[in-house]
Design a protein around this nucleic acid. Structure first.
Lengths: 341, 341
DNA sequence: CTTAGCACTCGAGTTATCGGAGTGCTAACA
DNA sequence: TGTTAGCACTCCGATAACTCGAGTGCTAAG
């Protein structure tokens, strides 16, 4: 257990280091407002804090920097979510009150504003579609062998796929069948679509079309791409401003990581509600061992629909990011509610 | 006019520098196969080549590196497009002979393979849609006030947009009108769509719907987004491997540039047919003053539909990139032809 | 328990040193 | 006249030596 003074000092060190990215010395700390102890006292305490593992020294006779546990303690017990700037708050509100755009556009704007305010790379996963309900299914022929299949969900998401009709199948028969599917499947959630088709429509279908397997495969494919996670990114270049990324190698490994959808999804997905913070090695990945990821889910009816988050150096402005994400997920959840109800 | 020997030497210097990224000395050149002159002779010639502006010295008593004009001369007169590796050629062929995917997917794969083979960042613009013909227009209502508008072209491109129906307009009237538009406008090229609507359908429309301006505006919006240039990128991180980008600042300015669709479009667009090479300052942009851009258009019926290109350091493997782009644009053009005819 | 004082440490930044690759020039040679 | 060997010279880049100062830990006094 830390004494009040130790907390105060740890807090000061982290705050200072977040701003300046340089080891913090005892003198610097002692000079802060309402600190009220001499450098020597601070030094003793700092030595203790180091022994406890909250601070570390890059080398003897340098100041201290927070260790990973130091950040963890700070994040768990010391920091106070920052009051957002009016202008930032306004910009966010405007995002969601402006005339409703297509969802994808709103998402892109959201991610973009988040990265602009924080100056970190920001990422959004989802929103997940798999309990969206089918609204409309349609095949539009382009020529004898080519057609476009379109799927619309009740939330207005559209997926399309070009299909080549194999020899021996007529486009008209496919159209016919799709029309049937369209009326029968309307309102069925996507995740149940496949099952419904197989179980309830199998018989009927085999009466209607000579080559129904083909159709089923097509629907399968569309669903697969529909349900796979979608990643939106913004502000990738911001990390280049951080002094911890003056080394090109680090930049490279991070950039490469950001291009792997799957890894990004894994890193950012959060099970809990509320803002989640993962610091350094807590991410279990070498490339982000000097990064922190702050993320939060947005909800619809208490269900997590997707995640929005920020990637930055462990020396991150947690106070700002946390309150920002808090507001953003709230507003985005509300936006989704407005949009779909 | 350069003597044969000078050409041979310039060629050797460029070739060597492209591989090693280090100033090339006279000894190195003289030791190359079928050079057959002593270092001293080479030195004299190199001094001349420098005077003519084709080579430069980073400092006295270092080897020579090609100047921008050096590269220009090399590209215009010296290089011999390289025979592609069988495996690369095969990979490309497979791209286009595999079962036809949606165009967007093929594009992404094309760009991706280009960057993988070259190890440079590669980019594709287009394909332009504006002489695509309208195939299908449809509005799918989601609820009382929200709907999705879908536009399909004869090439299978799908654009969709969520629309909010304003007070005082009924969704059914909009659907009705869109049906009318759908039959009347089918087969009209996109770039003539607007004019056609205004000129030929104005009267008819105003009879059918109380609030047709709204619809027109919607179509306008869709077209706008339809016609704006589309940029596909791959292998952004490859530039990080180039020694000329060990400095983070350069990386940053380039990355930021790559995020500006408009600039990228401007840089890569080529008027001419065939492969175009722009070296360093020929791009008229500080951020790419140490880069070369090699790009080529792909054609349908002799018309340029889009561009595919590569961004790398001026010290680029032009011989490889040029022949690669040559094959790629040919094959892609052919693919488009197959797809749409 | 706190703090002033002080010797000590160590890295960052600067300057000095050194080796070697590469040049330009000269003179000899074909 | 063109080519080449030889050689003195240049200059970069890597390495070592040096200095400076911020910051520490320890001690002893308040």
């Amino acid at each position: 257990m830390l004494s009040e003074r130790q907390k105060k000092i740890l807090r000061a060190v982290v705050d200072e280091y977040i701003v300046n990215a340089e080891p913090v010395g005892s003198r610097t700390v002692s000079k802060r407002e309402d600190m009220g102890f001499s450098a020597a006292t601070i030094r003793n305490e700092m030595a203790d804090l180091e022994e406890m593992g909250f601070l570390e020294q890059p080398h003897t006779s340098a100041g201290r920097i927070p260790s990973q546990s130091g950040y963890r303690y700070y994040v768990d017990h010391l920091m106070v979510p920052e009051r957002l700037k009016r202008s930032d708050l306004l910009a966010i509100r405007r995002l969601f009150t402006s005339q409703m755009d297509a969802l994808e556009q709103t998402i892109q704007q959201t991610v973009s504003i988040l990265s602009r305010i924080t100056n970190y790379t920001s990422i959004m996963l989802g929103p997940e579609l798999y309990d969206n309900k089918l609204k409309h299914l349609q095949v539009i022929p382009l020529n004898d062998r080519l057609a476009v299949a379109i799927l619309v969900t009740d939330t207005g998401h559209v997926d399309q796929r070009q299909i080549t009709v194999p020899e021996g199948v007529s486009l008209s028969s496919i159209e016919q069948t799709v029309n049937l599917l369209n009326t029968k499947l309307s309102g069925v959630p996507l995740y149940r679509l496949k099952r419904t088709v197989y179980k309830e429509l199998f018989e009927e279908l085999s009466r209607h079309v000579e080559n129904y397997e083909y159709l089923l495969a097509m629907i399968d494919q569309m669903l697969a791409s529909e349900l796979e996670s979608r990643v939106f990114t913004s502000g990738t270049t911001h990390i280049l401003n951080q002094p911890e990324f003056k080394d090109v190698e680090k930049v490279k490994s991070l950039m490469e990581l950001l291009e792997e959808t799957e890894t990004v999804t894994r890193l950012f997905t959060t099970r809990d509600t509320g803002v989640q913070i993962k610091i350094g090695y807590e991410n279990h990945l070498e490339a982000v061992s000097h990064c922190s990821i702050v993320s939060a889910s947005f909800l619809l009816d208490g269900r997590s629909l997707g995640t929005i988050g920020v990637l930055g150096p462990t020396r991150m402005d947690y106070q700002k990011v946390v309150s920002l994400l808090d507001v953003l997920t709230r507003d985005f959840s509300k936006h989704l509610r407005d949009l779909y109800k």
